[in-house]
Design a protein around this nucleic acid. Structure first.
Lengths: 205, 205
DNA sequence: CGCGCGTTTGACCATACTCAAAGAATGTGG
DNA sequence: CCACATTCTTTGAGTATGGTCAAACGCGCG
């Protein structure tokens, strides 16, 4: 397992273990790292509309200067057994001051992260429902890669997917069904997807 | 005028002066600062769909690690007389190494920037046309603040606005007209907006 | 001054949303 | 361990918001 930029601080990290659908208290400035499970970062409108800004998978780092201005983005565990390590701001600051390489790594991460977020603007803004779902599945496949099975474990609910892609639950469900009918994917169960025809899925962008 | 984080490097900056609708060559790693005019950063689909990721106003810094992976985001001048300073990567790296304060400032900028981008996900994903246009005008008002007039100079075209908000040009135009009819704004000319009823505009989120 | 592009408006259409309900799965308590 | 309840998922029917196509208008630029 590759070491992460904050590995040196693991002894100072506080580990949080969460049940399902549990809001993490995100302290501004502190850094977080998903150890296992799945975390969603989301924003809410007063009227209930929700937008999931990102899913954080094991190994992912987040907490880059949270939400002073603008409106808050909360972090919530998606599945039970989600474990998150919290790195105190001071320790991170000290590390970055003393270890330029770590600062560099984190900076690189932030840039990569930024780019991903900007790419999501395209998804949400300019893609059709089928394209969004397709791109989402490919993203899932890539991030949850490795494990020998060609089946992707879709841990989050249809509601989560909908709020991630800025669609309605019904549209997500219908779109998955249609992709299956077209032979692009197979759905052994509601929470497992097998990509049958990668080309068909990628027939976008 | 407040000094910016890269002020110390101004002597090493290369200044680019651009006509209207001119693509800047963005060198990965280098940093850019808008001196005057207006810059749009955008991504294109192969079929012509365009998404403007951000508008950069005078004083704004951009270029945080551009687009190695994923697809490219280009930067283009919007109005003639746009002037941009380019700071070579090496110089910035050296500055950040020698001046921790500068690094800190840039980091803070990046975080702020990130948050703005994430907020845009909401706009584009979960808001109605009227809400998007309203939020856009308020954003414009805030960024182009100061100048005594209550009239906002809308420098970009309706097409740019449309691709920024992920709407069609027609919808942008119609929405502006309707906001005017409702008395929320006044449109002295196509490129000037006066916010008549801030509350009405902000009646969202 | 005139041409071209940007803007506005209208009519029609399509995609995705809403409302509704049935069926499946997951978790709970007896 | 099973029965029940709740939540999640799927499907259908109708609707609405915003997109597309088309055309007129007006401003700005050459």
């Amino acid at each position: 397992m590759k070491t992460h930029p904050l590995a040196a601080l693991d002894t100072q990290a506080r580990v949080l273990s969460c049940p399902r659908d549990h809001a993490l208290e995100v302290v501004g400035g502190d850094w977080y790292r998903v150890i296992s499970g799945l975390v969603r970062r989301c924003a809410f409108f007063s009227d209930g509309r929700r937008q999931i800004v990102s899913f954080m998978f094991p190994g992912d780092l987040f907490g880059f200067g949270n939400a002073e201005d603008g409106f808050p983005i909360s972090a919530e565990s998606v599945v039970r057994g989600t474990v998150v390590a919290r790195y105190p701001r001071r320790a991170v600051d000290r590390l970055m001051a003393s270890e330029p390489a770590a600062g560099e790594q984190i900076r690189a991460l932030a840039f990569q992260w930024m780019h991903q977020t900007e790419a999501r603007l395209l998804n949400v803004g300019r893609m059709t429902a089928a394209e969004r779902v397709g791109a989402f599945l490919l993203e899932l496949a890539q991030r949850s890669a490795a494990s020998g099975t060609p089946d992707i474990a879709v841990q989050m609910s249809r509601y989560d997917i909908a709020d991630y892609l800025a669609l309605s639950v019904e549209t997500v469900s219908r779109t998955l069904t249609r992709l299956q009918e077209q032979g692009a994917i197979a759905l052994p169960s509601a929470h497992q997807v097998r990509i049958a025809d990668r080309e068909a899925l990628a027939a976008q962008l």
